[in-house]
Nucleic acid binder design. Structure first.
Lengths: 233, 233
DNA sequence: CAGTATCCAGTTGGATACTG
DNA sequence: CAGTATCCAACTGGATACTG
């Protein structure tokens, strides 16, 4: 039961639902294509399953999400009402990247970063056959190496070596690579300063920034005319 | 201290601030022109002063609001960052009016309604001199009559008779008048059905819907092609 | 006018374990 | 796979009173 503002104002009525913690992030995950309970959990690792379940029920009751059972498989998807939240979520992302640029250490998460990157690989740009990219975060005590396996049938993330030959190794600290992903730091600058190191065939290293698309808000203009990261050529 | 999502996603970073209860309603009040603590309180009657104070401080720390002391008067206003939330708040209002049309009894509040109406009087359309409109909510046990005093120097709301001659009396139940204000119900329909009764000179009664502007979201198209309330001619 | 101080009941949600 | 169940510590915010 979302708490009530006691106002007939439509902004207040909208926020009674949407300002509950996690709610709009669940909606964001659904917008990004997650359809099943455990897929949603992967994008929301700090959310307990009990709470995710509760939020989904609230969203279903509010008509924002529909729950579909086929057999023993459950599918969630946005209704028309939920899809109309997309411009709002997008605008919140653009506002956030402009006005809340600082990240705390607690905001960094290699699993989430790899998960985002894997969702945005430009498979057209990657050579045919299997391409494996290793991400190495040497400053970390655990979860220091991640493998991105790009093949014809999709893209996978692993935190254990799948054993295939590696085409490129990307070495950086997690904060730097996160900033590149968000568009806070341009590839060119990160590579030029040595903050990101690429190892592998020179041609593959040169091509890598085109294989990995950045966050959808990466190109949002920043306030104060700070130099704008440029997209990969 | 807003709680943390542990995500670098800019939507998550934005919501860490903005999904705290009341926060976006404070921002909305500032957008509507409130500048002082007690002015904000008038638009947020169910919010305790301690909580309003806390939210304002959080917004100032986040760079969304600036606090200005001149003498012993304190002024709050939105920064550039805060002003950039306006399209988001507007979009939330349009989404809310489309997808959360039902109002509970707890959402109805004559003081808030009169306060909204008073902020939106079209003083150009009202005859010169003083015009007093009485709003009568006969079904209510308390706060049954409200006076709107429109003069050259501004518009006032009273819940006690200011003693001036009354030009028009608007009688309706609170829910009906709230629905008219929100654009859920057209003036023409409300008057035609007798749900709203106007008393006074016929000419003034005919003109009244043009004196009172409706909510800024009143003309938002509704889903499902339900008949759209029309603006006052 | 513009808040602060205090108290405390109620709610929230994290952790963990478990189920059909 | 898709959740429930349970427990409980922490937080939240409402009420009320008070201050410079």
């Amino acid at each position: 039961m979302p708490s009530q503002y006691g106002q007939f104002c439509p902004v207040a009525k909208a926020m009674e639902l949407l300002d509950e913690r996690w709610t709009l992030l669940v909606v964001r995950e659904l917008m990004l294509g997650s359809r099943h309970f455990n897929a949603l959990r992967r994008g929301l690792p700090r959310m307990s399953p009990a709470l995710l379940s509760k939020r989904l029920h609230t969203l279903v009751r509010a008509g924002v999400v529909e729950r579909w059972e086929d057999g023993n498989r459950v599918t969630y998807r946005l209704t028309e009402s939920g899809r109309e939240l997309e411009p709002i979520v997008d605008a919140l992302g653009r506002w956030g990247i402009r006005w809340i640029p600082e990240l705390g250490d607690a905001d960094l998460d290699p699993h989430l970063l790899l998960w985002d990157i894997h969702r945005n690989v430009d498979t057209e740009a990657v050579p045919d056959g299997r391409t494996v990219i290793v991400f190495s975060f040497p400053e970390r005590a655990t979860a220091r190496r991640w493998w991105l396996v790009i093949a014809a049938d999709g893209v996978d993330v692993c935190d254990v070596d799948p054993g295939f030959p590696v085409r490129v190794t990307v070495q950086a600290d997690l904060r730097t690579l996160t900033r590149v992903w968000r568009g806070d730091l341009a590839w060119s600058e990160a590579l030029g300063s040595g903050a990101v190191l690429l190892r592998g065939e020179p041609q593959a290293c040169r091509a890598l920034p085109r294989w990995l698309r950045l966050s959808s808000v990466a190109l949002t203009p920043r306030p104060g005319g700070s130099p704008q990261p440029v997209a990969a050529r």
